[in-house]
């Protein structure tokens, strides 16, 4: 199927390096990375991705480099294309390398706040929020608001698929960790892998290899929550 269809990649910028390593450049006819910041208002993911899909004329296999991202990708329509998307709740699953690993980590400590390249660079973490809130509401209210959001968390984890990324983001992550000490969060680092992304690239070249870790949307279909849930 994908032998005859061009492959188009639409992915969150957070996967840029991982995808560049996993995907031979000649394989994809077109690769577009979208801003991480879209994650903070999930509706924007749908409209941005849909606009790109709608611009593609030749029926293609579209690899969507996104997780479910808090229902952020539900509602995307395949039109006359086929969409291949990893069956992952979010990018943390992709950095860890498998769904099983994510569920294990989740189960061992539900109160985990994950920090990754994207989260650190898009500015969505407690320390950055503190700076934003303080400007808008003053110090006392800013701290109160953050207490409401983060008081139940137990662990702050920097996750990356490579040791290089862990080393690169450590200083930033530790600054966030220091701030989060007020809620007693302990800091950890987890080295994941790019296994899941490698599988995605392999499946893109042969859709018959798709197992329960992937969702395929046929032409005329739509991404729905239940394809990921059940």
């Amino acid at each position: 199927m994908s032998d005859t269809q061009p492959i188009v990649v639409i992915a969150c910028e957070v996967f840029k390096e991982m995808l560049a390593q996993a995907m031979p450049p000649e394989l994809a006819a077109q690769i577009t990375y979208l801003d991480y910041g879209l994650h903070r208002t999930p509706n924007k993911i749908v409209s941005s991705v849909q606009r790109l899909i709608d611009e593609i004329e030749t029926p293609s296999l579209i690899i969507l480099g996104y997780g479910l991202c808090g229902s952020g990708i539900t509602g995307i329509q395949s039109r006359h294309h086929t969409i291949l998307v990893p069956r992952a709740d979010d990018c943390i699953t992709m950095f860890l390398g498998s769904r099983q690993r994510y569920y294990q980590e989740f189960e061992s400590e539900p109160g985990t706040y994950w920090l990754s390249k994207g989260w650190l660079e898009s500015g969505s973490h407690p320390l950055k929020e503190y700076e934003e809130y303080r400007k808008k509401y003053g110090d006392k209210d800013a701290m109160w608001l953050l207490d409401q959001q983060y008081r139940h968390y137990k662990r702050l984890v920097l996750v990356a698929h490579s040791q290089d990324d862990l080393d690169h983001y450590r200083t930033q992550a530790q600054a966030v960790a220091q701030f989060c000490e007020r809620w007693g969060l302990r800091y950890e680092e987890i080295l994941g892998s790019d296994n899941f992304l490698q599988q995605l690239v392999a499946v893109a070249q042969d859709l018959d290899k798709a197992d329960g870790n992937f969702v395929i949307i046929a032409p005329g279909g739509e991404i729905r929550l239940d394809q990921f849930m059940f």
Partner: peptide, 11 residues
């Protein structure tokens, strides 16, 4: 909750 929708509730 944020990711929940009516279809999921029905399901």
């Amino acid at each position: 909750g944020a990711p929940v929708d009516a279809e999921f509730a029905t399901r």
